[in-house]
Computed example of a mutant assay.
Amino acid sequence: TYSRMRHHVLQAVKTLEKEGYDPEVIDLISLKPLDFETIGASIRKTHRVVIVEECMKTGGIGAELSASIMERYFDELDAPVIRLSSQDVPTPYNGTLENLTIVQPPQIVAAVQKLVQGQI
């Protein structure tokens, strides 16, 4: 299946790697149960989390994932969990307007840069 966010994240990863970053990506194929073994291993290695989702921020899976990460791995985190989500508005059908409401690769790159540089 096609995942727009997976594509956007992988585009951002290419940019980040060119800039000397070493991002780790976890594509959660199953949302229930969540793979906390893989998530925990990544957090113990990177000590940071950026959640990217196409859903709206309010009430999305990213909110549940963020809360679960905080409950399980708070002591492993060097920074707050960052959530990049679609805007809390109905998604427009017009492609140009839709792209303005969902997370784009440059936003992912900027969030990772700020997180690693301690600006978040």
Score class of each variant (00 low, 15 high):
residue 77 L to W: 01
residue 64 E to P: 01
residue 40 G to P: 09
residue 114 K to Y: 01
residue 66 S to C: 15
residue 112 V to A: 03
residue 60 G to H: 02
residue 76 E to G: 05
residue 72 R to P: 12
residue 37 E to L: 04
residue 71 E to F: 06
residue 66 S to E: 06
residue 60 G to Q: 03
residue 42 S to Q: 12
residue 104 Q to R: 12
residue 117 Q to D: 15
residue 62 G to K: 00
residue 10 L to Y: 11
residue 75 D to W: 03
residue 18 K to V: 03
residue 55 C to L: 08
residue 115 L to Q: 14
residue 113 Q to P: 07
residue 51 I to S: 11
residue 63 A to L: 10
residue 62 G to Q: 00
residue 19 E to T: 04
residue 15 T to W: 00
residue 22 D to N: 06
residue 22 D to I: 01
residue 71 E to I: 03
residue 83 R to E: 13
residue 35 D to Y: 05
residue 28 L to D: 06
residue 13 V to E: 14
residue 63 A to W: 04
residue 77 L to T: 06
residue 95 G to I: 14
residue 1 T to N: 11
residue 92 P to S: 02
residue 66 S to G: 15
residue 97 L to K: 00
residue 98 E to R: 00
residue 61 I to D: 10
residue 116 V to H: 11
residue 64 E to R: 02
residue 64 E to N: 10
residue 38 T to H: 01
residue 110 A to V: 01
residue 37 E to H: 03
residue 27 D to C: 09
residue 48 R to I: 10
residue 59 G to H: 00
residue 118 G to F: 03
residue 110 A to G: 11
residue 25 V to H: 03
residue 21 Y to E: 02
residue 37 E to W: 01
residue 107 Q to D: 12
residue 57 K to L: 14
residue 13 V to N: 07
residue 118 G to M: 04
residue 71 E to M: 08
residue 4 R to K: 11
residue 60 G to P: 11
residue 104 Q to K: 09
residue 106 P to A: 05
residue 116 V to E: 14
residue 115 L to C: 07
residue 14 K to D: 15
residue 101 T to P: 05
residue 3 S to G: 07
residue 52 V to G: 11
residue 57 K to E: 10
residue 32 K to W: 13
residue 6 R to H: 13
residue 102 I to H: 00
residue 87 Q to V: 04
residue 28 L to G: 05
residue 20 G to R: 05
residue 29 I to Y: 10
residue 110 A to E: 15
residue 108 I to E: 08
residue 104 Q to G: 13
residue 24 E to F: 03
residue 55 C to P: 02
residue 79 A to P: 01
residue 97 L to N: 01
residue 116 V to P: 05
residue 57 K to A: 14
residue 26 I to M: 07
residue 89 V to N: 01
residue 35 D to V: 06
residue 29 I to T: 14
residue 110 A to H: 10
